[in-house]
């Protein structure tokens, strides 16, 4: 019952306790900020926090649902997207164009690959400036093929499936493979179909150029648990100027 027994704990269990206290929510604001600063630098502590969050999530059942006021969502939209709380946004039209793109991709996959690779045209119109395209494919049966298209102007990397693998219980995670001994850098988790777009973080944009390698791996639902690739690579390809 004395505090001296706590002081004699080695760092591992002590950090696990700190992670538990953080997740319980009993720390002061200053201590919470200190833990959060460490979380960004220390994967072991971040893993301990994630573990406690998972362990204690059974207590989430105590939060009995309470419907929020009806106008709340409109307020959220207006805070996020400005006052025009409609659905006619560029994000929605992008999504619509992706749906079109998907149906086309399924209809004429092989022709489309060739078309994209040699003409440098993108579905829905011509592409601005010089694009970068990559075809990502796997060797094994059941792997998938994706077309990636990077627009340097917007920093947006768009992906669409050309053939789809059987990855229903998993998430598809997209990686930038820097080469050498550097670990792959996650660019994000793709929707189950493999179709979608990723906004490449500004600090990574200079690294996207001809010859860089993209890879897609199968990860647990929701993506890699530790930020490093854990599952098999199901598609890989190099970027080139078409």
């Amino acid at each position: 019952m004395t505090t001296t027994s706590d002081d004699s704990e080695p760092d591992g269990p002590r950090d696990d306790l700190l992670a538990g206290e953080y997740v319980l929510g009993v720390l002061s604001l200053e201590d919470r900020r200190r833990v959060e600063a460490r979380l960004r630098q220390e994967p072991a502590l971040a893993a301990a926090v994630a573990r406690w969050e998972d362990n204690l999530s059974a207590l989430n059942a105590e939060y009995a649902e309470v419907t929020p006021p009806a106008e709340t969502y409109a307020r959220i939209e207006s805070r996020l997207f400005g006052t025009s709380a409609g659905t006619s946004s560029s994000a929605v039209s992008l999504w619509n164009s992706l749906l079109l793109w998907r149906s086309l991709a399924f209809a004429c996959s092989a022709a489309l690959v060739a078309y994209l690779a040699y003409n440098g045209e993108w579905i829905g119109g011509s592409i601005p400036s010089t694009p970068l395209v990559a075809e990502l494919s796997g060797q094994q049966e059941g792997s998938l093929t994706l077309m990636a298209h990077y627009d340097a102007d917007s920093g947006r990397l768009q992906l669409a499936p050309v053939s789809v693998g059987p990855a229903q219980q998993h998430s598809l995670e997209l990686w930038l493979v820097p080469g050498g001994d550097d670990p792959a850098i996650s660019l994000g988790v793709l929707p189950q179909t493999g179709e979608g777009a990723v906004d490449v973080p500004p600090q990574l944009r200079p690294r996207l150029g001809e010859g860089v390698t993209f890879a897609v791996s199968l990860e647990p639902l929701g993506g890699s648990p530790n930020g490093a690739r854990t599952g098999p690579i199901v598609a890989v390809g190099q970027a080139r100027r078409p």
Binding site: E53, P220, G223
Partner: peptide, 19 residues
């Protein structure tokens, strides 16, 4: 995008953000 790295259940992740 950080949900991918969290490795927890989706509702668990959302509740953690709210808590």
């Amino acid at each position: 995008d950080r949900f991918a790295a969290a490795g927890t259940s989706p509702v668990g992740w959302l509740v953690a953000v709210a808590r």
